[in-house]
Amino acid sequence: MIYCGPMLKKIFLFYYNGFRTMTWGRSLWAIILVKLFIMFVILKVFFFPDILERDFQTDEERSDHVIEQLTNP
């Protein structure tokens, strides 16, 4: 078992009790979680790849590609 000092325990309980006793905040958290899921799991993974990261291995290759794009459109 990991030992937590009294201060860490107090901080943990502060957040734990805060979330547990939420009333109107629950629906907000539901919205936040749905939103984060849509953003990071659906949009980022399937629709928004970082093109330069995905298509090139090194910064030099990325530089060459962008220079090519900027000078030979």
Binding site: W24, G25, L28, W29, I31, I32, K35, L36, M39, L43, K44, F47, F48, P49, D50, I51, L52, E53, R62, S63, V66, Q69, L70
Partner: peptide, 29 residues
Amino acid sequence: FGINFAIGVSTGIILEFEFGTNWSNYSWF
């Protein structure tokens, strides 16, 4: 304030996704 913050929070991150995908030349430049 809390409701507005919670609904709005992290919507700006989508802009950063767009930089990498739609505006890659700009992001690099």
